[in-house]
Simulated scan of single mutants.
Amino acid sequence: MRDMDYTAPGEPAPGNGDHTDGELRLRFGGADAAADAAGHARLLRTLWPSVPVPRVRAVVADEVRCDPVEGRNGAVLCDGDTAAAVLAACGRTLAAVHRVDAEVALGGPARVGGVLVHGDFGPHRIWFASDSLTVTGVVGWGFAHLGRPLEDLAWCEWRVRTRHPDCLDALPHLYHGYGGAMPPWAARRAAMVAKCRWMWEKASRRRDGTAATWRRREAITAAWRS
């Protein structure tokens, strides 16, 4: 599946997703557009309602039409007094994602020990209610695949370290929300470095000009000391 981005109603929609006529429309392109749309719809339908993803209304050719996503983005709320609650919600949400039947969600066999991995998880992929910290939507599923739980957890930590450096003290809430203790730093950093390399490989195939950026991020992440 291709990487998709999402926005809430009233905000500009990057990528191939937008809100039109009261619904979220996710559009796919290329020779496999119809198959990609069908696969994305299967994924969202498998996740719902265990995970609050956009609920699919219909698949029309190369377009998946869903209920709109409303509320406030977690990247905005991951700051100051609300950072701990946002990251705890991220942890609980990932725990729910990783309990979903990956074989059904991805339409293929799942290896022993593998889980459904979001692939680009962080506060920016969660929407909260406008008047509370209740999760209303988990979006951005274009990189979903079979993997290990630490991939999502460590990548969420990477997003916090790179986008919300003032919230590092709240990071334990991510892992506690997931239901466990923080893994050793060496394991978490290794997972972050591996993910940067994975992003570099994706960018190299897309040839969209971001490959060099991901190479640089990989080197910077590998040099982190905690």
Rank of each mutant, 00 (worst) to 15 (best):
G147M: 05
A35S: 09
A58P: 00
C78S: 01
Y178S: 07
V104K: 10
D3G: 06
H19R: 05
D169L: 12
L153R: 07
A83M: 02
F121V: 01
P109F: 11
C167N: 01
D120I: 09
P149K: 04
E201W: 08
T136L: 11
P109A: 14
D36A: 14
L171A: 03
G108N: 00
G119S: 12
R45S: 15
A186T: 07
G107Q: 05
R206V: 08
A110C: 13
P14K: 12
G74V: 08
C156S: 08
V53K: 02
L43Q: 01
A187I: 00
L87Y: 01
A102T: 14
A31Y: 06
E103A: 15
M4R: 06
R125I: 03
P149A: 13
F128V: 08
H164P: 02
H124V: 03
R197L: 15
V117A: 10
R205S: 08
H176Q: 14
W224I: 03
A190R: 14
D120Q: 06
T46V: 01
D208N: 15
F128A: 08
L106E: 06
A95W: 10
R159G: 08
V135Y: 04
L150S: 07
W48K: 00
R197N: 00
P54Q: 11
A33L: 11
D101H: 07
A41E: 02
L24H: 04
R148F: 08
I220D: 09
V115M: 05
V115K: 05
A203T: 02
V69Y: 04
G179M: 01
H164F: 09
A35N: 00
G39D: 13
T82Y: 03
D131H: 14
F28S: 04
A187S: 12
L153C: 07
R163Y: 10
T210R: 13
R217L: 15
T20S: 01
V100W: 04
P165G: 11
A170Y: 04
V60A: 14
V53W: 02
A212W: 02
H118Q: 11
A203F: 07
V69T: 12
C78F: 10
T82S: 14
V86G: 06
P54A: 03
V138E: 01
L133Q: 08
L153H: 03
V100P: 05
T82C: 05
D120P: 00
G91F: 13
G113P: 04
Y175G: 10
V64I: 06
H124N: 09
G140I: 01
G107F: 14
E11V: 07
L47Y: 03
G180E: 03
D208F: 12
L44T: 05
L146I: 14
V104E: 13
P172C: 12
N73M: 13
V64K: 01
D18T: 11
A186E: 13
C196N: 11
P149C: 10
T7N: 09
D62S: 15
T213L: 14
P54I: 00
R207F: 00
F121Q: 06
G17Q: 07
R125G: 06
T82H: 09
L174N: 06
S226D: 11
W48I: 02
P14W: 13
D166P: 06
G113L: 13
V100M: 09
H173N: 02
A170C: 05
P52E: 07
P54W: 04
T221M: 08
G180M: 13
F28I: 00
E63D: 07
D131M: 11
A35Q: 12
E23A: 13
R189G: 02
G29P: 03
W158L: 15
R188V: 15
P172L: 15
A83E: 02
D81V: 12
C90T: 09
